[in-house]
Design a protein around this nucleic acid. Structure first.
Lengths: 153, 153
DNA sequence: GTGTCTTATTGATTCACATGAATATTGCCT
DNA sequence: AGGCAATATTCATGTGAATCAATAAGACAC
């Protein structure tokens, strides 16, 4: 069972079951045949941006912080969604992004969430995204930021 | 420069420039500051399913085979798109797949292209895919195939 | 503060993957 | 067939990620 899948299960876990400690999580995961050590779990939680808080009645809960969700979105952009980007064209203060068919909307949403300040908004079809910026400078900036991420893959 | 990005450039290359040998490719790539050995290129081409054929006038060309494009789609499903799958629900001969918002269409297209025989067709919205099969048995089969891929990530 | 339960970090290890040099194989021309 | 150019494969190596055991650090009750 891979790491990604384990993360998926951990996220499910903190939403549904009431776990109050990492040990409880380990037990739950174990019952799903996911056997990991406490140190690995601790790192997983860190990666996922999950923290422990004290809810009502003094009970503990684990929740995912917004910052880290965003961090996660950033990773997603880097590792996955950009694989579907096939072309980018600069047109004045617009950036036209071409993607593998069907993936424009997903990539556009991701760009939205990441909230780069240069981007005013975007419209997505099936395989094309129109990214709108205030001026040509900003459009260029977005393009180079994307290029940078892409070439590091 | 990562492998994925290199693959991207190689695919671009065989569409635009007329390269008739791996050596020519290496030179082209080199002019883009991508320096790799011939053995690495050979492996890249294999992964991408690119073969050498003799076109008109006896000139050689490199093209991507359909089989390998499909293989690539399979990898994409495995490595990337399935990350956006958050839930799957079996309803008689339907499978309802929930995804991260915006990614339903991309995943559905991928499933279409992969052409599993159990799948009659699919409809995708923003975050939901309805996969239609002939009967409950087929729907179950699709679900377990997806599960298998997911848990191996 | 002390002790205990919980979580984070460190250090060592393993493992998979990517790569290039060297070599083998293939395919083609004569 | 022989020989050459192009491509594929093998083998050894390096690198980074993932993991766990052990330990440190932190939180909290008393």
């Amino acid at each position: 069972m891979g790491k990604k899948n384990r993360h998926f299960h951990i996220l499910k876990l903190i939403e549904s079951v009431n776990v109050e400690s990492q040990q409880a999580m380990l037990d739950e995961l174990s019952s799903q045949n996911i056997e990991i050590s406490q140190s690995t779990l601790s790192k997983d939680l860190k990666e996922l941006g999950i923290i422990k808080i004290r809810g009502k009645e003094g009970r503990f809960r684990f929740v995912q912080t917004k910052e880290r969700e965003l961090f996660h979105v950033g990773l997603m952009l880097k590792k996955e969604l950009l694989d579907f980007l096939t072309d980018s064209i600069l047109v004045q203060n617009f950036l036209v992004l071409k993607t593998v068919s069907g993936n424009a909307s997903g990539l556009a949403k991701c760009l939205d969430e990441i909230g780069w300040k240069e981007i005013v908004g975007s419209v997505a079809g099936d395989d094309t995204i129109l990214v709108i910026t205030q001026n040509e400078q900003d459009a260029k900036s977005v393009m180079s930021r994307l290029d940078e991420i892409i070439s590091s893959r």
